[in-house]
Design a protein around this nucleic acid. Structure first.
Length: 254
DNA sequence: ATGGCAGGAAGCTCCTGA
């Protein structure tokens, strides 16, 4: 079984990239973030034509999440129970016995911003939600754009980013509280190349210069981590014309 | 020198992203 995550930064612009990638990689589940699209405009037929079902929660201009699956997704939930949030950032579904949670964690903008306070509050809510999902389903995979670089090894220039949003102690503590629920960072289950990143700024030739961050993650409960044989970041889509600024990340489970 | 690039909605500019 293959499960993957990709922040596409507008599904409208990136649709062909996603279709091509699905056909090449054939994941059983692909979590998408930043659809920037109302539900009424979601390209259901385009995915159906290549054998994928879609469940999605979108809005105009910002945010928006989806899970694409080969088998029909079951027990679909949107948002976090008990947490009213107009921003569409969470969708979850059961796929082949695995509880797949797709998240687009807030960016936070800057430490001084109200958006940063929202991000930290949102992360506290996420911790409760994931704990509840683990209690209910057992086997949980939490995939998405976390907007958190967990360690300095995940940052091209830790000194430059020290104390900056995406790298603050409070955000990293929230990440490790998720780990503390009994999950593992899939990517770090295996030896990986140094300077492995999933996002590169569009500006200043960030990708070509390797100026990136690892902020897209796949967390796995212990039983799924045992089944995991590989986690890769696919750099190829980032090399295409008009790419997303994020690369997809994919885990293989036995 | 807080710039740079991209997407969306609006509309000839601004907000957001990370």
């Amino acid at each position: 079984m293959k499960i993957a995550t990709w922040n596409v930064n507008s599904l409208n612009v990136r649709l062909q990239h996603v279709l091509d990638w699905l056909q090449a990689q054939k994941p059983d589940a692909l979590c998408l973030q930043e659809l920037k699209m109302e539900d009424a405009k979601f390209p259901v037929a385009a995915f159906d034509a290549i054998g994928y079902n879609a469940v999605f929660s979108g809005q105009k201009t910002y945010n928006g999440v989806a899970i694409l699956t080969r088998q029909r997704a079951e027990d679909v939930t949107m948002g976090m129970p008990g947490y009213a949030d107009e921003q569409k950032r969470v969708i979850a579904a059961t796929v082949d016995g695995v509880r797949v949670i797709c998240v687009y964690i807030p960016n936070g903008q800057s430490v001084e911003s109200e958006k940063y306070a929202y991000k930290l509050a949102w992360l506290e809510q996420l911790e409760k939600f994931v704990q509840s999902e683990i209690a209910t389903y057992g086997q949980v995979a939490l995939l998405g754009d976390y907007n958190i670089a967990p360690a300095d090894a995940d940052v091209h220039d830790p000194a430059q980013w020290f104390g900056q949003v995406l790298c603050t102690d409070a955000e990293r503590a929230a990440f490790f509280r998720l780990i503390g629920l009994g999950m593992q960072d899939g990517y770090r289950l295996f030896p990986q190349a140094e300077k492995s990143f999933t996002w590169w700024d569009y500006r200043m030739n960030g990708f070509k210069r390797g100026l990136g961050l690892r902020i897209d993650h796949i967390l796995l409960t212990a039983d799924l981590a045992k089944r995991c044989t590989e986690v890769v970041i696919d750099l190829e889509p980032r090399k295409l014309e008009r790419p997303s600024d994020h690369a997809p990340v994919m885990a293989t489970l036995t």
